[in-house]
Amino acid sequence: MRVFPVYAPKLIVKHARIFLTGVIWVKDLGRLEFEKGRFLLPRKSLPKVKQAILELNELIEAQN
């Protein structure tokens, strides 16, 4: 598990694309899981977490 002390979308996306499957922890967002290079949306999450995951997945799609 990698810990990101700040929310840096480009760096987080780079990590997810390299490792494809895993878990990261982002300060103020908490634990985020990714599989096959995409972030998974938890069943229950705060609106800011949901927005961050959608933003990260959009960045991943834009890079493909």
Rank of each mutant, 00 (worst) to 15 (best):
G30D: 02
A52D: 01
E61C: 07
R31D: 04
V26H: 01
Q51N: 12
E55M: 07
H15G: 01
G37M: 09
E58M: 10
H15P: 00
L46Q: 11
A52Q: 04
V26P: 00
P42F: 09
M1Q: 15
R38E: 06
V6D: 05
I18G: 06
A8I: 13
P9F: 03
I18V: 13
L32M: 14
L46Y: 13
F19N: 13
L29W: 05
G30Y: 03
V26M: 01
I53A: 06
H15T: 04
R31Q: 10
M1D: 15
V23D: 05
R31V: 07
Q63R: 05
E35I: 12
E55I: 06
P9C: 03
F39E: 03
F39L: 02
I60K: 02
N64T: 10
G22M: 04
R2P: 15
E61T: 09
F34S: 00
K48T: 07
A62Q: 13
S45Q: 09
N64L: 11
L41G: 04
D28C: 14
F39N: 02
R2Y: 15
F4C: 04
E61W: 08
L54Q: 06
R2W: 15
I53G: 00
R38P: 01
L54I: 12
V3N: 12
I60S: 05
V26I: 08
N57Y: 01
P42W: 06
P9W: 03
R17S: 11
G30S: 01
S45T: 12
V23K: 15
V3P: 05
A16H: 00
K50M: 08
R31T: 05
Q51V: 07
Q63I: 10
V49L: 13
D28Y: 15
H15N: 02
L11Y: 05
N64D: 13
R43S: 06
A62L: 12
L56W: 01
R43E: 06
I24A: 04
I12V: 04
K44N: 07
N57W: 03
V26E: 00
L46P: 13
L46S: 13
E33K: 15
A16M: 05
K44P: 05
L20C: 10
A16G: 02
N57T: 03
F19Y: 11
D28S: 14
I24Y: 02
K48L: 08
E55G: 05
L54D: 08
F4Q: 00
R43M: 05
V23N: 06
L41T: 09
Q51M: 13
K48E: 06
Y7M: 03
K44V: 06
V23F: 05
A52T: 05
V13R: 02
L40G: 04
E35Y: 13
L20I: 13
G30F: 04
N57L: 02
N57P: 00
E33F: 15
K48H: 08
I60L: 12
P9H: 02
N57S: 02
K48S: 07
L32Q: 00
K36G: 12
V23A: 04
N64A: 11
K10G: 14
L32Y: 02
W25F: 08
L56Y: 00
A52F: 04
F34V: 04
V13G: 04
V49G: 02
A62C: 11
R17A: 12
P5S: 10
P42S: 10
W25I: 05
F34N: 00
V13T: 09
L41R: 10
I18M: 10
I53N: 00
V3Y: 15
V23P: 02
V6W: 14
M1F: 02
L29S: 00
N64Q: 10
V49H: 05
L40E: 04
P5V: 13
D28T: 14
L56E: 09
W25D: 05
A8T: 13
G22I: 03
S45A: 12
I53T: 05
K27A: 14
R2V: 15
L20G: 11
V13Y: 03
I24C: 06
V3G: 06
P42H: 11
Y7V: 01
R17I: 10
E33Y: 15
S45H: 12
E58F: 10
G37T: 07
E61D: 12
L20S: 09
H15Y: 07
I12G: 00
L46F: 12
R38H: 11
Q51W: 11
L20P: 04
E61R: 09
M1R: 10
V23E: 15
A62T: 11
I18A: 09
L56I: 04
H15F: 08
I53H: 01
K14D: 13
F4Y: 04
V49K: 12
L32I: 13
R17E: 09
K44D: 07
L54M: 10
